[in-house]
Nucleic acid binder design. Structure first.
Lengths: 153, 153
DNA sequence: CTTTATTACGTGTATATACTCTCTTTATGC
DNA sequence: GCATAAAGAGAGTATATACACGTAATAAAG
């Protein structure tokens, strides 16, 4: 059962979820030797590039529910990749990369590049850049509506 | 914390997962009165439009692992939306919509249309059509690579 | 300065996801 | 025909995800 064309379905969330499932499987497969899953590497990369973060900030950056961040981050802390320190305020916690986490990101980088090369290579760099922009655009559409609905409540 | 721009990150799987999280939240929010989640409605819709399916076929169509199909379908069976019958072969099972499932799809349709309208309306129909095609394209890129790797093993 | 609202975060629960391993059934080789 | 391979599916386990609810700390109102 090789590559089947996705049938005539308009539903946006269906296409997005199907695509994300498939591409996550690809990245997970390529990253497998590193012991990091796609989401885990994403979190470490984001924290590495833009951190440190509070739990809330990380959630906003990743479009991820706060409580999901808590659990994902806890896992990475147990693996020794992240450190979770008290924040400025006694309510907040500061999530930052550990030395081990930094090393893991470096070691994983070439595998990530390989996966990225397969995908971007298969689509073409220009098309990927455009796609990336469109993804950002619909995130903003969705985010805006969700924020609007949250305000009403 | 309103709509924040996704920072300068190239990683494809990060953008896809972030987008899918956000859009799933939107659809789930709009679908909430119906009691169906995004994935559940997607499965019912697919089975309704293209079914019946074996577990494997449904997995292929949705880019979903076979074992995930088993569990998702079981849930919908317990809700009374799907029926799971023996297939042509004593190995296979046939997944089809029940009368109740058909009714649920119909009742849910206007909510789905509302969510879809928010998204497609926010992006523009032309851009959405293009985006949809690009999503299909990268699914095929990913699928092809995954199949290649599966053959080697 | 006390009451009240807001902010930041965690737990309980349920769905979504996929890999590994195993079982049963069908197809293939000889 | 029988041994072996392949196909279809489920169970065990682990991660990913988010909503409802609860708690502690800070900010705002008076």
């Amino acid at each position: 059962m090789p590559t089947d064309e996705t049938p005539d379905i308009e539903c946006a969330v269906f296409h997005l979820r199907k695509t994300t499932r498939t591409i996550t499987q690809l990245y997970d497969e390529v990253l497998r030797p590193t012991g990091l899953r796609s989401t885990q590497y994403s979190i470490l990369r984001i924290v590495s590039n833009l951190g440190p973060f509070t739990v809330n900030e990380l959630g906003t950056t990743m479009g991820m529910d706060r409580t999901t961040v808590t659990r994902n981050v806890r896992l990475l802390e147990r693996m020794g990749h992240l450190r979770i320190e008290p924040g400025d305020d006694r309510r907040t916690r500061r999530v930052r990369l550990s030395a081990r986490g930094r090393s893991a990101v470096e070691k994983t980088q070439p595998y990530w590049e390989q996966a990225q090369a397969i995908l971007v290579g298969g689509l073409g760099d220009k098309r990927w850049q455009k796609l990336r922009n469109e993804l950002t655009a619909i995130v903003n559409v969705g985010r805006k509506e969700l924020d609007k609905r949250a305000d009403t409540r």
